[in-house]
Each structure stands twice: as structure tokens, then as C-alpha cells.
């Protein structure tokens, strides 16, 4: 489709379909692009498939969940065409993940330092000194005081916010072209959430890394992204610039999502849940589309 465009997208997902072994579809014909230096938010409710997109790109789809159709291009390279080992190395060299839960994403029995420097040395082939210097630099950048002491600590000795900052430092350390941030603030305190968001945005601007930001929080979307992709039941139902989406949402579901975002000023704009009639209608659409898809497959 768009694979022959003149300039290279950082990430180009074309007609991605992902399904469970029995054929239940988790992603339906999802296409999206990320330009260099762009932050794209992926929003949708639980189970909409937003995390699946990031996992498919990084090659960490859960056991038994498979890509059934589609193409993923990272910096113009066709990931599907590669052997698993090549794909793993290519993805690792060009992209990184900021995980959802900082409490489980660090190995509890290993010190922080090696957990940051190991990939730099063993995958990116840096010298020990260079990796150590880079880790120190990044830890300093994410406002960790006494980086050397922290690198000699174990995860349980640090707070959740600190651990997420360490994971952000680790993600940016090899200067990746793409970072997948999988709800990186969901597991954190509200007060810490803001700091973390600001850090990701700052580092992203400084480095020009493209970020695929997975979230269910429209408030976060407004703060961090230039583009938004709204998913419902594995389908893209809206894909536009962030300001367009907030000022003039095209799809009723997007309108409902924005209306459902709580604001401090409750009297001015009371909180409105997404209407269940709308959700039911969207589900009917999905079922109908799937039936059509199945029919097409049979012919």
C-alpha cells in the first residue's frame, strides 16, 4: 500500500491483523504510521487492542497470539520477512520499551547498573566504560541523585517513581529511533505521573525519538501527543492530529471518550460516562464486519 513512499516512516504498520488461535480477532486491519520525532497516542478502552500493537511491533506477543495478516516496517525494514533472530536484533537496535509496571519490570535479584548497561554492552556492542558513562548520564538526566549509588542498588530499595525513571533512562540509553511506551504512568501515583510524563516528553524532544504512547487516558493524550489513534474492539475508528481530535472529534466514540475524561472543574463540565448504547452499536458494527470478513475468507 504505502510501502513505496519516498521517505521512510519510523514505523509503518500496514493492515495489521492479530488473532487468537481459535480465530477470535484482536486487531482488525490496523494501519498507522509514525514519522521521526513524532509522538502518537494509541487510545481505547481495556481490550481494545492498543497494547497488542506495541507488542506486535516489539515481537513480544503473548504465547499463541499470532499475526495473521499485515506488514510492520521499522525504519523501512520489513520485520515479517526476517528470521526470528535477525528480527530480535533489528528491533532491539532500533526500538525500546517503557513498560507499564515499574515494580515488575526490573529483575529483583540483579543490581540496577547492569540492568541498564547489559544490553548496551552485549547487544549494541559498546565498551564497558561507554555504557557506564551513558547510564550515568541518563540517570542524571532523569533526575536521579547519586547515580552511582543507585546503580549499585537492588530494585526493592527504590520507589516506584524512581524505578520508572530508571526504566525511562534505560529505554533512551541506546538512542532508539522508536520507543513504545505501554501505559507508563498507569501503575504510578497521580503526583508521580506528571513528572514521568514531562520526563518522557522532554527526552523525546531532545533526542527526536518517535514514541508510540499507549494509554486509556485522554488527559494524558492531550499532554503528550501530536497524533492520536483511537481504537475500539481492535479497529481504528479515528486517526488524526491531537488538536483536531480534541476540538473536532469525528467519531461519536471519540466524542464520548473526551466527554468521559474528568476535569477539575466539575460544575463547568460534568463527568459523562461513555453511553452504553453507543458501545453496543459499535460492537454490532464489529460483529457485522467480522461476519463479512469471514465470508470473504470463505470465497
Amino acid at each position: 500500500m504505502t510501502s513505496t513512499t519516498a521517505h521512510t516512516h519510523t514505523l509503518d504498520i500496514i493492515n495489521l491483523n492479530i488473532a487468537l488461535p481459535r480465530g477470535q480477532r484482536l486487531l482488525r486491519n490496523v494501519s498507522l504510521q509514525l514519522e521521526p520525532g513524532e509522538v502518537r497516542a494509541l487510545v481505547g478502552e481495556s481490550g481494545a487492542g492498543k497494547s497488542m500493537i506495541g507488542k506486535a511491533v516489539l515481537g513480544i506477543l503473548p504465547h499463541k497470539i499470532k499475526m495473521t495478516e499485515g506488514e510492520i516496517l521499522l525504519e523501512g525494514a520489513h520485520l515479517n520477512a526476517m528470521t526470528p533472530a535477525t528480527r530480535r536484533r533489528t528491533v532491539a537496535k532500533m526500538s525500546a520499551l517503557i513498560p507499564q509496571d515499574p515494580l515488575t519490570a526490573l529483575n529483583p535479584v540483579r543490581k540496577i547498573g547492569p540492568q541498564i548497561t547489559d544490553p548496551l554492552i552485549r547487544i549494541h556492542g559498546w565498551s564497558h566504560q561507554r555504557a557506564l558513562a551513558r547510564a550515568r548520564e541518563l540517570l542524571d538526566r532523569v533526575h536521579i541523585r547519586a547515580p552511582d549509588r543507585v546503580m549499585h542498588s537492588y530494585p526493592h530499595e527504590l520507589s516506584g517513581g524512581m524505578r520508572q525513571r530508571i526504566l525511562i533512562a534505560a529505554a533512551f540509553a541506546p538512542s532508539p529511533r522508536l520507543i513504545v511506551a505501554d501505559e507508563p504512568t498507569t501503575a504510578l501515583d497521580v503526583t508521580v505521573q506528571k513528572q514521568i510524563l514531562r520526563l518522557i516528553r522532554e527526552l523525546q524532544r531532545e533526542t527526536g525519538t518517535a514514541v508510540l504512547f499507549v494509554t486509556h487516558d485522554m488527559g494524558v493524550v492531550a499532554k503528550i501527543s501530536q497524533k492520536v489513534t483511537v481504537l475500539f474492539a481492535g479497529r481504528v475508528i479515528e486517526d488524526a492530529a491531537t488538536h483536531t481530535v480534541f476540538e473536532n472529534p469525528a467519531h461519536p466514540y471519540t466524542q464520548a471518550l473526551i466527554a468521559a475524561t474528568p476535569t477539575p472543574n466539575v460544575s463547568a463540565r460534568p463527568f459523562q460516562p461513555v453511553p452504553s448504547a453507543l458501545i453496543a452499536e459499535l460492537h454490532r458494527d464489529t460483529v457485522a464486519a467480522d461476519a463479512l470478513f469471514a465470508q470473504r475468507g470463505r470465497r
Partner: peptide
């Protein structure tokens, strides 16, 4: 199945490396 092993895979480590370097000490306990 833990997040830190998933993260190690994203960082480019092979499955054997993930088992020996990340999982083994946790599983040994």
C-alpha cells in the same frame, strides 16, 4: 512470564540468554 524477562527480550537477548541471565536466579530461590 514476568515483565523483566519480556523487557530483556525487547532489549535483544535470546531466549537462552534470558533464561540464564534473568530467570535462573529468580527461579533458583
Amino acid at each position: 512470564t514476568q515483565d523483566y524477562t519480556t523487557l530483556a527480550r525487547v532489549r535483544g537477548f535470546s531466549e537462552t540468554a534470558v533464561i540464564l541471565r534473568e530467570a535462573l536466579r529468580n527461579a533458583a530461590l
